[in-house]
């Protein structure tokens, strides 16, 4: 029996294997004197790629909430921010403003994820029973409240400056800038793939079937004896924890957090990516997110060849993004790779 025969064939297991491999190779770059050389033309790809794998964790969490369970969470950035701030405040050393406790980063990351899950639990405990569009409003308002708390409590959260001096474990280990970028991309990308394996396992289990049943018809699901509120709360908390993990990784990659990184724009990007790809299909939502974030690359390259100012290009890109959202909902409500019949949007 050759090694090739042992390669798993299931989607989830394949993602798990690929993820572990990525983390190992990334670790190899970081820990050994092995060096990577990056052509300068590829820098921008790798940078957007790192942001993409971090947002990938966000979209996986959101897909668990909206795609599978039907919870319209429009404040997803809040949990991203809580994870990032939790990690940053516990691990930062010599921050310029706000609190930095200087604990080891693995502990800080754990606390960041737990804090995001707790905030998710608090939000869902109070508002998970609200009708779809009102849940959207409450989560949106919660995110705005949190944003203004981060901006206004300067003594604790550092105001608009945010928390600086967060340790960057991968950057500290890797030798030079190129190796650092490659190792970061591989390690975080690996974590995203492992998470993909995790949520695939979760949603292909009978548990995931209950979640999809709730999305299809909550009353029927309750009538067969499932405690829908418990399931909805769990799905919401899992999604929040994944967003918290994304936030913690973002803080440890970026070395600083500030309110400017956590605007409603993040929520909108992730939502459009999910809807474009096709909700309730983990790989599709990642692909949709890749398309939306690929637009950033296009606008960056177009910037070099055309003589228009960058803010004009940013506006054009956002017009296109908004129109993509409108078009997808109207003409392809299940997304590019989504299953219209299963999502109940078949017309």
């Amino acid at each position: 029996m050759s090694l090739l025969d042992r390669v798993p064939t299931g989607n989830g297991d394949l993602a798990l294997l690929a993820g572990v491999c990525c983390v190992l190779i990334g670790g190899l770059f970081a820990l050994t004197p092995l060096r990577a050389q990056l052509p300068s033309a590829l820098y921008v790809f790798v940078e957007v790629g790192i942001l993409f794998v971090i947002y990938g964790l966000l979209v996986l969490g959101l897909d668990l909430q909206y795609g599978h369970t039907g919870l319209v969470n429009f404040g997803h950035v809040a949990f991203f921010a809580v994870g990032a701030y939790g990690t940053a405040m516990l691990s930062a050393q010599d921050t310029f403003a706000g609190i930095g406790l200087g604990y080891p980063w693995p502990l800080a990351l754990g606390v960041g994820v737990a804090a995001a899950a707790l905030v998710g639990l608090a939000v869902s405990a109070t508002s998970i029973r609200l009708r779809g569009d009102f849940l959207a409003i409450v989560t949106l308002a919660a995110a705005e409240i949190l944003h203004s708390v981060f901006v206004n409590f300067e003594g604790i959260f550092g105001g608009n400056v945010g928390i600086l001096g967060v340790p960057r474990p991968i950057a500290a280990l890797a030798g030079d800038a190129d190796t650092r970028l490659i190792a970061t991309l591989l390690v975080i990308g690996g974590i995203t793939l492992v998470s993909l394996a995790g949520v695939t396992r979760l949603t292909s289990a009978p548990y995931g079937r209950v979640l999809r049943a709730i999305r299809a018809d909550e009353l029927v699901t309750r009538s067969v004896g499932k405690s829908t509120v418990t399931y909805k709360t769990q799905a919401f908390v899992y999604g929040a924890a994944l967003a918290g993990l994304a936030g913690g990784l973002f803080a440890l990659y970026n070395g600083a957090v500030a309110p400017g990184f956590f605007t409603i724009q993040v929520t909108v990007t992730v939502w459009i990516g999910m809807l474009l790809g096709g909700a309730a299909n983990h790989r599709a939502v990642l692909a949709g997110l890749a398309i939306i974030m690929g637009l950033r690359l296009i606008s960056r390259f177009a910037l070099d060849v055309t003589p228009v100012p960058s803010d004009v290009f940013a506006s054009i890109r956002l017009i296109v993004v908004g129109l993509i959202l409108v078009t997808v909902i109207r003409y392809r409500p299940a997304g590019i790779w989504g299953d219209a019949q299963e999502l109940g949007v078949d017309r």
Binding site: V72, R131, G132, D133, A136, V268, W271, I272, L275, D311, V312, A314, S315, I316, L318, I319, V321, G322, L323, I324, L325, V326, I329, R330, P333
Partner: peptide, 22 residues
């Protein structure tokens, strides 16, 4: 239903806001 309408209005809002800015 309400959720697709809400999402459409969010997309339209982004497009309009940036068109005005342009």
């Amino acid at each position: 239903g309400p959720v697709p309408l809400l999402l459409t209005s969010i997309g339209l809002g982004i497009a309009l806001r940036n068109a005005i800015r342009l």
